[in-house]
């Protein structure tokens, strides 16, 4: 039972990969990439969890009174979310350009060269 959260992270990653490979729409593909990325949140937070732990914030917890979950991985997950959101925006902007230039957003129909 101890490895279930880790396995969930791996499963989310592989589901995202499946979606990416079988995608018929670029917006759907960008969504799948986000799914892949969210597996890292699950993995990071699972690595940092401690039984009975609370949030590592001392605004209302006296230091030393309770076990804390690992703040380092939480900071990494925060970083991950921000970068993921902006990179998704950049990818969606690329999808809009592809749609305008090629008139299709099906990756299978985008193999031809143009220009």
């Amino acid at each position: 039972m101890n490895t279930v959260p880790y396995l969930v992270a791996g499963w989310i990653f592989l589901v995202g990969c499946y979606g990416l490979a079988t995608s018929r729409h670029l917006v759907h593909a960008v969504g799948c990439l986000t799914v892949c990325q969210s597996s890292t949140y699950v993995l990071l937070l699972a690595v940092g969890y401690r039984d009975g732990g609370t949030a590592p914030v001392f605004s209302d917890v006296t230091p030393g009174s309770r076990p804390l979950v690992d703040p380092v991985v939480q900071a990494l997950a925060l970083t991950d979310v921000v970068v993921g959101a902006t990179v998704t925006a950049l990818l969606l902007a690329l999808v809009m350009q592809v749609a305008k230039r090629h008139g299709t957003v099906n990756p299978d129909e985008l193999s031809e060269l143009r220009g």
Partner: peptide
């Protein structure tokens, strides 16, 4: 193991944050 008690980096980050009077350890890390 998931939920284990050993988090060497976490413990060091918490004591560093307390030493620098930052109540939100995650902000201290970032």
């Amino acid at each position: 193991h998931f939920g284990g008690a050993v988090h060497p980096y976490g413990e060091r980050a918490v004591s560093a944050a307390l030493a620098r009077h930052t109540a939100n350890v995650i902000s201290s890390v970032n």
